[in-house]
Design a protein around this nucleic acid. Structure first.
Lengths: 213, 213
DNA sequence: GCGTTACTAGTCAAACTTGATTACCGAACG
DNA sequence: CGTTCGGTAATCAAGTTTGACTAGTAACGC
């Protein structure tokens, strides 16, 4: 599954009530168009789909205050909130090399209590290690790694990536345990959305060199 | 773009002529179902689509020799071969955190001349470095990284990942320059396909722990 | 006043992906 | 000798993603 649902749920939730264009802008503000499939079509589709499934409720709303077609505002439901936390927890816990889900979940990690965040990340490290040994057992067969030829480099890449991630996760755990950031129930939360009318410093358009999306 | 087209083109090409089920088995043999969207539906869809676009030609073929419906065999065309090499080169060169494309391209890297492989990988490192500095400039604003709060951890993750990849790429370059593997024009190539009737040691079914696909 | 540009907000068809399901055949079983 | 089982090979409907496109309003220059 892609990260679009998690991102959209998170954006709507932080606003309380948001229309599609607002969500679209938030995701852009988070840089999500760089590392996930957060494109207009996908965003509007996700909104409609999740409204149909009861994770959001759609309010029909009067014409836009700033030009353009009339907008629909969305609000997250109880079920939507549950799904949101389920997705955050799952993405933090499980290792499956899906960069977009992982990044999105980091963006929402402070919505959890600090202790739970740390516990989930530790669980993640255990997952990486289990995956690591399962790969080395499974794919580096008795005949020795030479049997695989250059294909072995793919596994090499996986392992290298997994190790790098474990290392980064370890660092994050340390920072969180050291008191960094403001987690759920610890006072004034960090606000990661654009206020109405605020200008987006990271607007679409410029690509990073080397990108080929 | 996903890696499915590259994978399918590569599989058909290594066989000379292959039917869908054969391709499906090869991809499984390569472990592609673990790290890409190489599922039956996608494979058959890609075959049909690319046949329609002239990258493959479809031969209608008599009923299967081993049960099941009649099979269609595919053969790669000139245009398909061009597209194949274009995809390999692009995936090796450009940094865009798409794990599946990268893995697939490593699997086909020995189809290029050794010198070109090294050149592309060096280009890749340059790309990673350019991307790295563009991210640090762009997303770590004047106000200092604190302004971003925990969102800064996402960029931290990106950078960490990029660095790990640059390191791995460097290692691969060294191994290739040191004479590892057999590249195009260097004699007996490594064969990464299953022979007709050969058993697949890495068949589907067992998942690695920690996976959540 | 009036065209032109720019921004807001969303839609749409075409392509792709997914997971389940179908259809066919051979072999084993009782 | 029918029937159930397992492997082969592919299809299908439902859902998702993409990139281009539409349509409305405001603001600007002249």
């Amino acid at each position: 599954m892609s990260a679009i649902r998690l991102l959209v749920l998170g954006a709507v939730r932080q606003h309380g009530r948001a229309h599609g264009y607002q969500v679209r802008n938030d995701l852009e503000y988070w840089g999500a168009h760089e590392w996930s499939n957060a494109k207009p079509g996908s965003i509007y589709h996700a909104l409609k789909q999740m409204a149909k499934q009861g994770l959001l409720i759609a309010h029909e709303i009067a014409p836009s205050t700033a030009g353009g077609p009339p907008r629909t505002e969305y609000e997250i439901t109880e079920a939507g909130t549950e799904e949101y936390f389920r997705l955050v927890r799952e993405a933090l816990t499980s290792y499956d090399q899906q960069t977009d889900m992982k990044s999105a979940a980091i963006g929402f990690i402070v919505e959890l209590p600090r202790a739970e965040a740390v516990a989930l990340l530790k669980e993640r490290i255990r997952g990486i290690e289990a995956w690591r040994s399962s790969v080395t057992e499974h794919y580096v067969p008795d005949a020795g790694p030479e049997q695989l030829g250059h294909i072995g480099e793919i596994m090499n890449l996986w392992l290298h990536t997994a190790d790098a991630e474990a290392e980064w996760t370890q660092g994050l755990i340390a920072r969180i345990e050291g008191g960094a950031y403001t987690f759920a129930g610890e006072g004034e939360p960090f606000v990661g959305v654009l206020a109405e009318g605020e200008e987006n410093p990271y607007a679409t358009g410029e690509k990073h060199p080397g990108d080929t999306h």
